[in-house]
Design a protein around this nucleic acid. Structure first.
Lengths: 198, 198
DNA sequence: GTCTATAGATGGATAGAC
DNA sequence: GTCTATCCATCTATAGAC
């Protein structure tokens, strides 16, 4: 039994995803929510407020998903695998919201913009910390960890753009393939390993 | 000496990049181009026509950049390196346009949408063909070449989102780092190589 | 090829009744 | 908490003079 504020938020997510924020009108939201457009303003102070609510919730949830998934893990390799998996699964499960988060930041006021990008930067920082540790302790190849963090994150973020619920592969299979590829790219060529056979 | 149509296109690229397509008005474009808004309609039949012109040119140029760069190359490894480099450099050199191309497809009519996505799919197909060849001939690890093509392409596409002209690294350095990382991820662990020392 | 003028619709937002 | 009614700004696009 969702209250009206949740209903408004849900239809707004749908609209912003399908038509973009600026192409969606308050009247569109009201029509889909089944109320008059003036009633929107009882729940939200203006249009941007709806957008901010969506982005804020999304970033908070993204961040706590990562924190939960990392709990108790020790090595950089374990951690980066868990972080990659968490990021991919979130970007599939919350497809519409993360697409909005990735494309509608221009709809925010300067202040709100800073709030959201700060959360995003903190989140990225956690990936960078893991990568740096793995490079420093010799688990990963020597590379520019900042640039590679952008690479990994944007590659896994973009899954939300092409993932198809009815497609050939499940979200878990995609996470597995990406993890394998990325870990292979991060690790050295194992020539120093004791194993000499596959 | 640009003509007025080019001027309109240039300021539209700037506006659509900064404010998004739907948040940009014909009056904004006219003001920046230094003419009255009605004069826009002498050069373009409507607002969408401007967007389509931008996207069409961008896709044509992206595609021909790739074709030129691939000319004469033989092996899958040579080809994928060249393709990655071409893709990254284009996404830095034409930053504004590719950001529009990646976020404003919803502004197109069904017909125009099909035209642009067809060009994008053909372009992606070239990457997939190279990857498949490399997997089949044993140069690359056995993996899902379609999924990995999305990974490589979206990772290199997203460079346009974070690249900073005044930043620490040049576009060539970024291309080199990404190429190294991706090739390392695509190739086997060399355990069968004759070299046993770094 | 660019102008002035304007049509006609829709945008976000507010006032005040219930 | 939702409604009706309305304000005013802005939007895309067109007509017709120069």
């Amino acid at each position: 039994m969702p209250n009206m504020k949740d209903t408004i938020k849900t239809v707004a997510i749908d609209l912003f995803y399908k038509k973009s924020y600026f192409a969606s009108g308050i009247s569109d939201i009201a029509r889909l929510a089944g109320i008059q457009k003036s009633s929107i303003y009882y729940h939200y102070s203006n249009k941007e407020d709806i957008l901010f609510d969506i982005l804020n919730t999304t970033m908070l949830d993204l961040n706590s998903s990562l924190n939960q998934r990392l709990e108790g893990l020790k090595t950089a390799e374990e951690k980066i695998q868990a972080a990659i998996e968490s990021h991919i699964l979130f970007h599939i499960e919350r497809q519409k919201e993360v697409i909005i988060a990735d494309s509608e930041l221009r709809g925010l006021s300067i202040e709100n913009y800073k709030t959201i990008t700060k959360m995003r930067d903190d989140y990225e920082g956690k990936f960078q910390k893991i990568l740096k540790k793995g490079i420093d302790d010799g688990s990963f190849i020597k590379t520019d960890y900042k640039i590679i963090s952008y690479g990994i994150l944007t590659m896994c973020t973009a899954v939300c753009l092409w993932f198809d619920q009815k497609g050939r592969l499940s979200k878990d299979e995609i996470a597995r393939i990406y993890k394998g590829f990325l870990i292979n790219g991060l690790k050295k060529s194992h020539r120093s390993n004791s194993r000499h056979q596959e």
